[in-house]
Design a protein around this nucleic acid. Structure first.
Lengths: 157, 157
DNA sequence: CGTTATTCATTGCAAATGCAATGATGTCAA
DNA sequence: TTGACATCATTGCATTTGCAATGAATAACG
């Protein structure tokens, strides 16, 4: 169980490795929130993100969401299909460019968001309270990480 | 594309939502590193984590890794199977408790880590350089998030 | 001891995922 | 216009994933 790395090698501790730490923290946070809406509202993380983006911005194409919400387009597409089947969003062909699909919240979708948003905001508030003074530092660090080119080819992003 | 939320509802911007930001930042960081070792060494993120933990601690059971490395036990088990097939680790029944499987790096595994570790450490160094003064703040925030009970039932974790 | 719970690793299987087509539409320049 | 190329959303398909058995081994406790 103890350290036994080759003394010629630099020591390596996964617990101090930022990508790993980020990954675990992100998983915990997302899962913590997801457990609040999954059972109650029956939606997945991807669905939540699509809804949240629709609530924020009006009619949007799948492509827009893919870019803004950091989800594979196929994931967005399938989430949209499920949300449409559940009656929370509507899909319509964009008359100006018929390749595009306009996604929009239905009345039911808005009602759903009216229930979920307070939960999400409460979760965020809890998180901030829990972090206290460390919150600002975390956000600044995240901002720097996210600022980098959105491009997935940037290894330092 | 513009804001059009119900004025009775609080505004909601996914871009300012910490779980989402964490998730995107984590994905970028993990993917950024993964692209460095995936093509060159043919290992996945799960495999990398198992290897990294084995490099740090000696013989370990699947259960230990599951707990320490934040991976589902089935994921660990399958990663271990692939790593064994590739010749990087060895599996052996623990003589003291024959339910346990001792995982350990083989000579090849150590050689692999000798190649990967500098890459990983370089990535970490790049990250820290990129973050500059913000790095400490990020780490403190992550620490607070990770400190909370490891328990998945804690919504604020 | 013997019997019942627990713990561990693996695996079966349904669902989710990612990537590469596919088809339908748009753009642009010859 | 026409034809080559680009963009968009969806879907096919192989792989991966997560969860719930499963089977093997141990612990707990009468």
């Amino acid at each position: 169980m103890e350290d036994q790395h080759d003394p010629a090698q630099p020591p390596f501790d996964l617990d101090r490795f930022t990508p790993y730490r980020l990954s675990v923290a992100a998983e915990r946070a997302s899962e913590g929130l997801a457990r609040l809406y999954r059972s109650r509202f029956g939606i997945s993380v991807a669905e939540w993100r699509v809804l949240a983006h629709l609530e924020h911005s009006g009619n949007v194409s799948v492509r827009d969401i893919e870019a803004r919400v950091a989800l594979e387009k196929s994931k967005v597409s399938r989430a949209a299909t499920r949300l449409e089947a559940a009656g929370y969003i509507a899909k319509a062909v964009d008359p100006a460019d018929r390749r595009l699909v306009q996604l929009s919240l239905t009345e039911e979708g808005r009602a759903l968001m009216a229930e979920i948003l307070p939960v999400a905001l409460g979760f965020q508030a809890e998180l901030e309270a829990r972090l206290g003074a460390a919150f600002d530092g975390l956000e600044q660090g995240l901002q720097k990480l996210l600022d980098g080119t959105e491009d997935k080819d940037d290894p330092s992003a």
